[in-house]
């Protein structure tokens, strides 16, 4: 089983919001900057990797029951985004890794956990 906390540790990430979900399990992940595609393709209990930093990322997660968002490439969201995530119970993790590396690390972890 892989939890939100495992994701944060694996990516050497900093937790910015939503500590309530740390022990929750995640089943898959998706890397995208296009929220339209996230809405069309992502399954539930997924981690979303993105470089996009606006409140609509949190909204998209909220609608899709995505409990964890990882911001890649060392980017940090604004206070409004952090506040909305806390309000909606979405965990935010910031990692310095690039999208490719972050996705690859978690993908390998999912495969070895099978």
């Amino acid at each position: 089983m892989i939890t939100v906390n495992n994701v944060a540790e694996l990516l050497d990430g900093k937790i910015l919001a939503g500590e309530c979900n740390l022990s929750e399990e995640v089943h898959s992940a998706c890397g995208a900057d296009m929220m339209s595609d996230v809405l069309a393709f992502v399954k539930d209990k997924a981690v979303l990797f993105t470089g996009l930093m606006n409140p609509q990322v949190i909204r998209t997660a909220e609608m899709m029951d995505i409990i964890c968002i990882v911001f890649v490439r060392g980017k940090l969201p604004g206070e409004d985004v952090i506040e909305l995530a806390n309000e909606r119970g979405v965990t935010l993790i910031a990692t310095k890794l690039r999208m490719f590396e972050a996705c690859g690390k978690l993908y390998a972890e999912f495969n070895s956990a099978k």
Binding site: D33, M34, M35, S36, D37, L39, A40, L52, N54, Q56, V57, T60
Partner: peptide, 15 residues
């Protein structure tokens, strides 16, 4: 630029 407008909205709603 905000992450929308990929032309998936209406087909996704139908789905």
């Amino acid at each position: 630029a905000l992450g929308f407008g990929a032309g998936m909205g209406l087909p996704n709603m139908k789905k």
